[in-house]
């Protein structure tokens, strides 16, 4: 119970962050012609920012099922790496059925907080998932219902929330580890190339380019700065 409560507390900032991010998802879904309950069902069953955004673009066209599958696999392939990464840190109590149930909640931020643990207990992970899930659902509902009430200037500022959260996850680690700083720099710089070279921007979707840049940067990092056994656990 103690572990569950500690997880619950650790999830509060993620939940608040999700509230504002999914709020903009709700607004976007309605502006594209979806109903409020469709937006909420998408959020409750999927729980991912980039994937859901990509999905909206596809769903407004009829019957592009293959495109949906391909785009989701490329946008979300990072979750597989996170799941494998976290599988190395879970405690013995994380049995098969718990992995199948709790794996549903493997988002970037939940992963990042869980990965900071020395050993991940299923109770901690379950607690950690609760408030982000509520925040993600509630934010979508509120965005869909009252999004158009807020002035545009507030809405556009809120779009920065998720990136602020990313900064807070990466910066403290990059500050301590030059290797992480290098990996982060390579991934970011490479993705700018994808964004600013017109041919690449026109022909490579952002889901695919994110995966390519991340994989290249992590491979370079693994080749140049292989982690020592203890260091990986400590940081």
């Amino acid at each position: 119970m103690k572990l569950f409560l500690r997880g619950l507390r650790s999830g509060i900032p993620i939940g608040l962050g999700y509230l504002s991010v999914s709020f903009s998802f709700g607004i976007m879904a309605l502006s594209m012609g979806f109903t409020w309950w469709q937006a909420v069902i998408i959020s409750m069953t999927t729980v991912t920012s980039a994937g859901q955004l990509a999905a909206l673009d596809i769903m407004i066209h009829p019957a592009q099922y293959a495109a949906m599958l391909i785009s989701q696999l490329t946008v979300n392939v990072r979750y597989s790496f996170m799941s494998i990464s976290l599988s190395q840190k879970v405690s013995d109590k994380f049995t098969g059925i718990k992995r199948w149930l709790l794996g549903f909640f493997m988002t970037d931020e939940i992963f990042a907080v869980a990965a900071a643990e020395d050993e991940v207990d299923p109770k901690f992970f379950a607690g950690l998932s609760v408030i982000p899930y509520i925040g993600w659902t509630l934010g979508t509902l509120l965005g869909a219902l009252i999004g158009n009430v807020l002035p545009a200037i507030v809405l556009s500022a809120l779009c920065l929330a998720i990136y602020g959260m990313f900064l807070a996850i990466v910066a403290p680690v990059a500050r301590k580890s030059r290797a992480v700083l290098a990996v982060v720099g390579i991934a970011g710089a490479l993705h700018c190339v994808f964004y600013f070279v017109p041919w690449l921007k026109a022909n490579v979707s952002s889901g695919i380019s994110i995966s390519i840049c991340a994989i290249v940067a992590a491979v370079v990092g693994a080749l140049l700065f292989p982690v020592k056994d203890q260091e990986e656990v400590a940081e």
Binding site: F166, V170, L190, A217
Partner: peptide, 17 residues
């Protein structure tokens, strides 16, 4: 090592630009 670096690389590529 790859698994250790991948989450940070993903977040960075999503943030920039």
């Amino acid at each position: 090592s790859f698994l250790y670096y991948i989450p940070y690389a993903v977040l960075s590529a999503m943030t920039l630009p």
